[in-house]
Design a protein around this nucleic acid. Structure first.
Lengths: 342, 342
DNA sequence: CTGAAAGCGCTTACAG
DNA sequence: CTGAAAGCGCTTACAG
C-alpha cells in the first residue's frame, strides 16, 4: 500500500525501537516482542509494527541486543595460515554454514604466530563471541580456557581436541596413507617408496605410518618402504624422482605426501624417458589443481575441506544452542581419487 | 608482585568495570578513563586500576563500548566469490592490515549471488560496522546507500567505484594486456593472437583492448590480433592451441587471458612437437602457481592481490578516522613476470 | 495480549 | 584529577 514514504536523504542513523513503537502506536516492549517472540503478539499488532519498521527502514542494533539479551550471534574463525589454499576451502564451508544458520563470522589469520593467535583470541573475548573455531598454532593456547571461562565455546579445526571435553574436526592422515598404499597394492605393486617433506610434519608422519600399516595388511614388510625426504615443492619432487630412478630402481610405485612432490616426481620420471604409470606409478596427496593438470593426471588423496568447514560449524552451533550437547571428535576420512598415474 | 591470585575455575563471565573500580578503590568512570584517555589519570591511579584489571582478568565488553561510545572497531568484508584464489590473497591483505590497525573483520561470501550479497550487507548494518569492503556482485546494491545513510563507509574492491564519492581499489586490466603485448613486441613478435574466455567478461575485454592498444603503439594493425575464444580452462587452452597451429600458422606469439588457458596452449604446442618459445611464445595472466609449474615456465601478468587487500583497508580506515578524507579510486598496475615461455 | 520499569556494561559530559 | 549521573538501544521479567 504505502510506497516508501521516507524522505530521501533522511539520516537513518538512530532509527530505534522507540521510533517504531511511536509510529505503530504501541509500546516499546511490544516492538521487541514482534522481533523476538512474534507468537506472543496479535497478528494485527504485528502487522502494524512490521509496517512501521519497513517505513522507517529500521535495523535492530545487534550490540544493544547482545548487551541486554546476553546472547550473541557472533562466531570467530582463527586460521593457522591463510596462505594455505586448504584453509580457503575450509573458510568457505564455515562461512556458508554459519550464515545459513544466522551467525556472523569474524576472521583472523594467525599466520603461524602464537602471538597473533593470542591477540585474535583476546579480540574474540572482547566481542563476547558465543563460539570460536580454532586451527591452533600452539597446543593449548591460554586464550582457550579463558574463552571458555567467559562462556564461549571452542571447537578445534584440523587438529584433534587436546582433551575429551572439546569438539574437534580433523582428518585421518593414517587412513589416507593406507588408502594410497592399498590402491597401489591392488594394482599389483609390492615395491613402493614414500616421498615426504621434512620429518617433523605431523601429517606426513601419520601418512607414512598409514602406508606402512597397509603394507603389513598386504603381507609386505613395512620396512621395505623406502622413504625419500625432500623439500616440499615441485623441485623437491624432481630431486626425489631422480634419486628413486638412480638409487631404487626396483621400486615400481611411489606415494607422495603432497601433490607438489608428486608432480615433481612425475616430471623427473618422464624426463628420464620412463613411462608413468608403466615404469613408475604415482599417488599424490591433497588433490589440488596441480595433480589433475599434470601431463599424466595424478591420482591423489582428497580431503573434504569444504565439508570439514561445514561440520565444524555444525558442532560449534550445536554446542552453543543445544543443552544436551555431547562433545565429538570428528575424524574425516580422506578418499583416493584415481587417475592415470596409477 | 601478585601472581595471579584468581581462584581457579572462577566464572569470568561478567567481570565488569564496576568490579575493577571496587577492587581498585576508584570510581566507575575512572576505570573507563584509564581505558580511553589514560592521560587524564594519575600515574598512580592508573597503576592501581591496571593491577585490578589484571587480577580480575577483566576484558572490556565491546558491545557495551560500542553502544555507549558510538564508535565501532568492526569492519565487513564481502567477497564476490571465495572459490577464487584471487580473493584468498586479497583477504589475507585485508586481515593483516585490519588487525594491525586494531580492527576486526567480519567475513561474508556472496558466492556470486546478489541475494547473499544483500543479506551480508544487512547483517553488517545490524552490527553497526564502521566500514565495509565490497567486491560487488551487482552494480550498486541498495544495501550500499543504506549502509552509508547509517554512517558506515563503503570501499569498492576489485571494481572501480560507480561514483566519485566512493573509494575503490581495482586493477588496470588494460595496462596488463598492453604490458603483455609490448613485452612480446620487444622480443620481436609482430603476429600475435589473443586467447580469451567468454566474451562477456569485463576483465578479458579490457585486457584485449590493452593488447590492441600496445599493437598500435608498436606500429602494428590492431585488427591483426586474432582472438580465439574458448572455455576458461586448461582444456579450453589446449583446444585454442591446436586451433592456432592449424588455422593461424603465421602467429608467433600468444597472449592468454589467464594462466589456465596459457598452460593448455603450451601443452598443445609441445604435443604437436613444436617448441616454446621458439615456435610459439606464450604469455599468461594472473601469475598463479600453474604458470611457474608448466613444463616450460610461463611468463605471466601478475596482480598485486595481497597489496590490494592492504590498500583497501588503508583507504577504508582513512575514510573512517580522518575528517579530511578525500575519496580515491586506486588503480593498481599489474606487472609482467617474464619466464622462459617468451 | 500489552505496557512500564529495570538493567545489560560501558562512555561521556558535567560538577566538584 | 576524580566522582555521580545520564544515556546508548535493546530485552526481559513483572504487572495489569
Amino acid at each position: 500500500m504505502h510506497p516508501s514514504t521516507t524522505p530521501s536523504g533522511r539520516e537513518e542513523r538512530g532509527v530505534t525501537v522507540r521510533d517504531v513503537a511511536r509510529l505503530a502506536g504501541v509500546s516499546h516492549g511490544t516492538v521487541s516482542n514482534v522481533l523476538n517472540r512474534p507468537d506472543r503478539v496479535t497478528q494485527k499488532t504485528r502487522q502494524k509494527v512490521e509496517e512501521a519498521m519497513q517505513r522507517l527502514a529500521f535495523v535492530p542494533n545487534e550490540a544493544a541486543r547482545q548487551l541486554s539479551g546476553g546472547r550473541s550471534r557472533l562466531l570467530g574463525l582463527v586460521l593457522l595460515d591463510l596462505e594455505n589454499p586448504f584453509f580457503l576451502e575450509v573458510a568457505r564451508g564455515v562461512e556458508d554454514a554459519a550464515s545459513a544458520a544466522g551467525y556472523v563470522v569474524m576472521l583472523f589469520n594467525a599466520a603461524g604466530s602464537a602471538d597473533r593467535e593470542a591477540r585474535a583470541l583476546e579480540a574474540l573475548r572482547e566481542h563476547r563471541v558465543s563460539g570460536v573455531l580454532l586451527s591452533p598454532v600452539s597446543r593449548m593456547a591460554e586464550g582457550v580456557p579463558r574463552l571458555r571461562a567467559q562462556g564461549a565455546h571452542v571447537v578445534f579445526l584440523d587438529r584433534r581436541a587436546p582433551r575429551a571435553d572439546f569438539c574437534s574436526v580433523a582428518v585421518d592422515d593414517h587412513h589416507g596413507g593406507a588408502e594410497a598404499m592399498s590402491h597401489l597394492v591392488s594394482r599389483g605393486h609390492t615395491r613402493v617408496a614414500f616421498v615426504s617433506g621434512p620429518s617433523h610434519l605431523r601429517q606426513h608422519q601419520a601418512r607414512l605410518r598409514g602406508v606402512r600399516a597397509a603394507a603389513v595388511v598386504a603381507g609386505l614388510d613395512p620396512d621395505d618402504i623406502i622413504v625419500f625426504r625432500e623439500e616440499m615443492s615441485v623441485v623437491g619432487g624432481e630431486r626425489a624422482g631422480r634419486r628413486i630412478l638412480a638409487e631404487a630402481a626396483h621400486v615400481t610405485a611411489v606415494v607422495c605426501a603432497n601433490d607438489q612432490l608428486a608432480f615433481g616426481v612425475e616430471r623427473a620420471t618422464l624426463e628420464a624417458g620412463r613411462s608413468v604409470p608403466r615404469d613408475l606409478a604415482i599417488v599424490g596427496y591433497d588433490n589440488v589443481d596441480i595433480s589433475s593438470h599434470a601431463q599424466v593426471p595424478i591420482s591423489s588423496v582428497s580431503q573434504p575441506m569444504y565439508e570439514m568447514g561445514r561440520a565444524s560449524i555444525r558442532l560449534l552451533i550445536d554446542e552453543i544452542e543445544n543443552e544436551a550437547h555431547a562433545h565429538e571428535q570428528l575424524l574425516y576420512t580422506p578418499t583416493l581419487i584415481a587417475r592415470e598415474s596409477s
